[in-house]
Design a binder for these strands. Structure first.
Lengths: 231, 231
DNA sequence: CGGAACGAGTGACTTTAGTCACTGCCTCCT
DNA sequence: AGGAGGCAGTGACTAAAGTCACTCGTTCCG
């Protein structure tokens, strides 16, 4: 199993180019955890215990409002690390994390990770790079929330999905939603009903063909135009 | 003038505890720039040339939409650094920066700062800490935009202002706005008119006394209650 | 088999946000 | 003095976002 762990470590940007010995030193300090779909890894405000690395599955980082609404900050897939920050500054987790799919997650305790960073200064630089891209993504979310409508955000999300997992067909590009409307809503910062309605509307306007969770994007170029208009 | 520079360097978290020699080595690589109120330091998308440190005045970091709306990401005062990130990852600036007041700003070129970090690994750790707190602030903005109303954000802003620069008086706490409604609107992610209207409304409800840019907070506890409700 | 639980769709409505247009008030300039 | 320009207040409106309540299917058990 240590080999499996190393394989994953090698895939995460933070630890990509370590030597054999460094790698196995690190691997011995890593523990493996499983989370079922929907399970909570930690909640906002919890004391930070260590660093997480996604091996398989997807982890959703999100904020929860007191009214029960969710806002997704990031979705991390295999190879991604998260919660690097509180490990360093010692603060609490600023958001909650749950498994979007069944997931295997590696865990390194705060102490072990800090020690490792002290011994390997270039890892600290990697941390900065990772945190940096995270920061850019957050700025992007702010931009979206502040400047765009739910419709535009939904279109943007659909375009991302088609990009990532769309398959071309005669009628257009086919995409299968792997999440509920509820989940989509949380990603773009709105509520279930508006996702439903906007999808219907996009269908009525001829951009999409919606059948349950199967979507056929009939007019990709048109969608892109819609998204851009009055941004 | 080098002494003045060192004094400021010593005030910024990034370089707080360096030795005399380290400090003067750094100081010799720093240049001083002045920006008039309203002047633009750089625009979103510009290539990153180096790191900035605020000596005096205030710098506003913001996003600009194509429709002309602004969203403030941060306001940095004396002792704060900004644009640490793109210095490291080599990317472009993710947002624009302008002077909110006349400001003196120190500048370190990308190369010089990177070299300095390489020679002083603990500075890298400081960078992580600074970036970390920035990340937390961004998460806070997202939370606000996603979960709260303009009214609540305005109240929160007023409470922050009274906290920071309010002076007690017989009628309540006096605060003087140093910015236009336009600027306040950009900070809470809305438009001029809504700031104006919401202020009037808060006055009508008896929480405030507004006279131009002078505001007297008459019911601090009440405001806090309003802010908390249905967050 | 029956029914709980969940996800989705939708009509009807309220609230909040944002836009447009116009007025009035300072301040500063030459 | 007189006008230009920036800032603030407001009425009237539109449009977006969100809420509530209910229906209809599935699926998934016990």
């Amino acid at each position: 199993m240590n080999e499996l762990v190393e394989k994953i470590l090698r895939k995460t940007p933070l630890f990509a180019n370590l030597t054999e010995t460094e790698m196995s030193a690190l691997a011995s300090r890593v523990s493996n955890r499983h989370f079922d779909r929907g399970a909570l890894l930690f909640s906002e405000g919890d004391a930070c215990t260590g660093l997480f690395l996604v091996a398989t599955g997807k982890i959703r980082i999100f904020k929860l409002s007191s009214a029960g609404r969710e806002q997704v900050l990031a979705v991390e897939g295999p190879g991604s690390s998260f919660a690097e920050l509180p490990v360093f500054d010692g603060g609490n987790y600023p958001a909650s994390a749950s498994a979007l799919e069944n997931a295997e997650v590696l865990f390194i305790s705060r102490k072990d990770f800090q020690n490792f960073c002290r011994e390997h200064p270039d890892v600290a630089l990697k941390v900065i790079a990772v945190v940096g891209s995270r920061l850019r993504r957050l700025v992007g979310i702010i931009e979206d929330l502040s400047f765009t409508t739910v419709r535009q955000r939904l279109i943007a999300l659909l375009l991302r999905l088609t990009q990532a997992s769309g398959t071309p067909s005669k009628e257009g590009v086919r995409v299968e939603l792997t999440k509920s409307h509820q989940d989509l809503a949380a990603e773009i910062g709105t509520v279930r009903e508006l996702v439903s309605r906007n999808l219907s509307r996009l269908q009525a306007e001829g951009f999409l063909e919606v059948d349950g969770r199967k979507i056929i994007v009939k007019d990709l170029a048109g969608l892109k135009r819609e998204q851009a208009s009055s941004e």
